[in-house]
Amino acid sequence: MLFSAEDRFTALTKQPLKAIGTANGGALSTWESIKSIHAHREVLALLVRRDLKARYKDSALGLVWTLIRPLTQLFIYYIVMGKFLGAERGIPDFAIYVFTGLTVYGLLSEIISGGTSSIVGNGGLIKKIYLPREIFPLASVGSALFNFSIQMGVLIVALFAVGHPSLHTGLLYFFPALAIIVVFGTAFALLLSATNVYLRDVQYLVDVVLLILLWASPIVYSWEMARNIMGDGVLLALYTNNPITLAVLGFQQAFWVGGAPTAAFPNDLLMRMGIALIVGIVLLFGFHRVFARLQGNFAQEL
């Protein structure tokens, strides 16, 4: 600590006067944002921990609750879709198949729904203190990733339990698939969190859209079934090139060892994933610009 006023003044004189507020300078200001988020990474880590800690505070089961929801979903889909409706025909290790898809989808849905409400939810903080506002949606991404890692742990244990551990080169699909989900999730979390400040309808809309997305990718049924119905036309191309479908297929390639080698998958999956990733990065950049433009008025709109 400095003690004398003169020392403090000298130290201050050495620092440049920095303009505060949002600059609208294109790529350069994106770089500035990244720098300032980096400077606040400790806060980001603490906010993620706060989210996780506060969520299950005062509950006896605590973190176990993060697992109960996906496991219940798994149970319902396995029984209803698999057994009653017969979706498991032609899909070996159906439980693993569904859980793999649900894990991917769960990550995306948590990033987007958590991210969307992050700015409004942290309104108290935003109105009183300046922090790079990107931190709040990013903290949602962080806590979603944490829950995702727990689910992944369960999935891996389950793979060993059914005797099909995923020790093969297909495992490499995991990385681009995860990247797609994180990039798209973050991009939309940024966009939606900012628009939600101005229009609170967004968060309800997001719930509805997420529900549709669950069924718009091969999570509880197979891609082959979709192809059989849609045929090889534009519709299938649209369906397949949906980044969530690509990520789900990527995860299935990686972990659904019992069925992946024999099941039908779209051609050039890796290339499609690469393109999706590039599109995602462009979107991330663009949506961040939107976010940066909208954030100046957050404090007064909250």
């Binding site: 920095k18 903080l125 109105k127 203190i129």
Partner: peptide
């Protein structure tokens, strides 16, 4: 915390703000 509609604010040094109860 608020961006001005027009005009600029420049500042240096470390800042702590105590705006309302228990910010954060």
């Amino acid at each position: 915390i608020l961006d001005p509609t027009t005009g600029t604010v420049a500042r240096r040094g470390r800042i702590a703000a105590l705006l309302e109860l228990g910010a954060g």
